[in-house]
């Protein structure tokens, strides 16, 4: 465990807690893409299959349970909670995310570390996480300026992946046999997707204005 990875996990946790806070405090999920949340739930379930077979550390197990629990709670909230579900605006959340699921699964069938059930699903979850934010970014662009908590949610998600890239560089430099190309390449793609969002976030923060994304 290195500081970059720990910081990455913490910002990831913060992003999920910010989202839960927003939904719980405002009893509203306006501006949030249900499709992105569903993709994240799939990512965590597909990746943490080893939860009961491989024990790595208490920290690892606890964090996996928290991530799976929170992501399912958010999807449940947005789909079934009698107050929150009415604030979900499905005609702006129109990204066809099932193509992302299919594309990532096909890619995982061809590019993986070992052709085993667990490894293919692991690679699938890595690819899917890289693109899971797309429905949310499309929704943000479509709805123009958005509320701060949603913006902070995306910001912390981007920061988490950026810390993980520093973590992979650090591990590559310090651990002889470290070669995790699938996660590193997918992580780079994911962070690049956030880059334009970060740019507009920084501009709006500098001008102390609300975030305006180009339509």
């Amino acid at each position: 465990m290195n500081i970059f990875r720990f910081a990455g996990d913490m910002t990831h946790l913060i992003s999920i807690l910010v989202l839960l806070l927003k939904i719980y405090a405002t009893k509203s999920c306006s501006g949030i893409s249900l499709k992105t949340q569903e993709l994240y739930a799939i990512v965590f379930v597909a990746r943490y299959l080893d939860l009961f077979t491989d024990f790595i550390s208490v920290y690892n197990t606890v964090m996996k349970l928290v991530f799976i629990g929170c992501s399912l709670a958010i999807v449940w909230c947005m789909r079934l909670h009698r107050v929150v579900r009415r604030t979900y605006n499905k005609d702006v959340d129109t990204f066809r995310h099932y193509f992302l699921v299919l594309g990532c699964f096909l890619l995982a069938l061809f590019v993986h570390e070992k052709f085993t059930f667990q490894e293919v699903l692991w690679a699938f979850s890595i690819y899917l996480e890289a693109v899971a934010i797309l429905p949310q970014l499309v929704l943000l662009q479509r709805s123009g300026n958005v509320d701060n908590l949603t913006v902070q949610y995306v910001f912390f998600l981007g920061a988490y992946r950026a810390f993980y890239i520093l973590n992979w560089i650090y591990r590559y430099l310090t651990e002889p046999h470290f070669g995790r190309w699938i996660a590193s390449v997918a992580g780079l793609v994911q962070t690049a997707l956030y880059a334009d969002f970060f740019y507009y976030y920084f501009i709006s923060w500098k001008n102390n204005a609300k975030l305006q994304l180009p339509a």
Partner: peptide
């Protein structure tokens, strides 16, 4: 103690 497995990251 942390077991170094191939997928020791979250």
């Amino acid at each position: 103690l942390e077991k170094i497995s191939n997928h020791d990251e979250l």
